[in-house]
């Protein structure tokens, strides 16, 4: 699923998705949940940072 597809599914612009992915913008919880639903992942899987996940990556 491309960045553009996710953006269209969630209802935001591709630039907003790009800013979230690069860590330039912290999305609201509602938007986080919408992204998780679009990708079929949980909040932990996408947004939780630990040793195995890189910092500031969706």
């Amino acid at each position: 699923m491309s960045q553009k597809d996710v953006a269209e599914t969630v209802g935001v612009t591709r630039q907003t998705m790009n800013a979230i992915e690069n860590g330039d913008y912290n999305p609201s919880i509602n938007l986080c949940i919408a992204i998780c639903r679009a990708l079929g992942k949980t909040l932990d899987q996408l947004f939780w940072e630990d040793d195995s996940n890189e910092k500031n990556r969706v």
Partner: peptide, 11 residues
Amino acid sequence: MKKIEFDELQQ
């Protein structure tokens, strides 16, 4: 007039 909806970053 149709309301333009912006996403949260745009707002």
